[in-house]
Amino acid sequence: MTVDELAEGVLRGDRRLLARAMTLVENRTPRGRHLLRLLYPHSGRAHTVGVTGSAGSGKSTLTGALTHELRRRGKTVGIIAVDPTSPFTSGAILGDRIRMQDLTGDHDVFMRSVATRGSLGGLSEAVADLMCVLDAAGKDVVIVETVGAGQDEVEVARTAQTTVLVLTPGTGDDIQAMKAGIMEIADILVVNKADLPGADTLLGHLRALLMLNRAEGWQVPVQRAIASREEGVVELADAIEQRRRFLETSGALETARRERARHQLLAAMRSALIRRAVGESEGVSRLEEAVERVASREIDPHTAAEELIEQVRER
């Protein structure tokens, strides 16, 4: 199958080809990059939502429940669920479909499980590319659900237009989120499992924190939910919709779009450079050589990097 046929299939909404296209893009093959080149102009229509929160906060259940609500509103949905790759074996167990299994019969929902894979170039870049494919395939809303709520998630969440941070009572989630700097980038806060003791304390704490509003003029809502019973998802879908309208009318969308474009461009440049400098097999040994020299303090990392890049230019 040619890349053009694949791209055509994606744009036509062929699920099988969409799945195949996502594999190419995720594997960062030259064909995958070619495909993205074809699909990128057709993207930019979907509203992208990042759902982040610590493990056990009920992100998958909430994402599933939110998707049900979006479907009731007639929106088509793409979901990217990220799970961690084992650093020891480079394998992964991706289990998010368990919580979203009743969506499987709906052909207007497309869900893909993605492992973090420790590749250079970064997860956020891969996720942005996968979102682009689902966007081009015509999904109205593309949701990315992150692994946890740490530094990596901040990066991933930034690739989405709206970031939903999920917290649960009694876990110290709020403290963790603040430490990771994710509180600052959250656009909507959801206290999930709100029937657990401590929910009101957490809600109060979050509301107090958010008295300090963000500069762009978006009032961050703090909501309660019990995702397992689909409680609070109507409100969440409303808030996401409001966020989208806010982005459109305030001009923030344009700013954010440029911001994201800049971010993605820089990220893409970074990986392109790395790929060229050390991406091929010969390059790997060049990298290892440089690593040795830096480790033994023979040379500083900045000079070593300049040298590697210089070699690319010479070739």
């Binding site: 790759t85 084992s86 074996t89 480079s90 394998g91 992964a92 167990i93 991706l94 289990g95 479909r97 368990i98 299994q101 499980s113 492992a115």
Partner: peptide, 14 residues
């Protein structure tokens, strides 16, 4: 788990 430990990505649907 064995497949994961041998480096594969396993989608587990339960």
């Amino acid at each position: 788990r064995a497949l994961r430990d041998s480096g594969m990505e396993v989608i587990y649907t339960g």
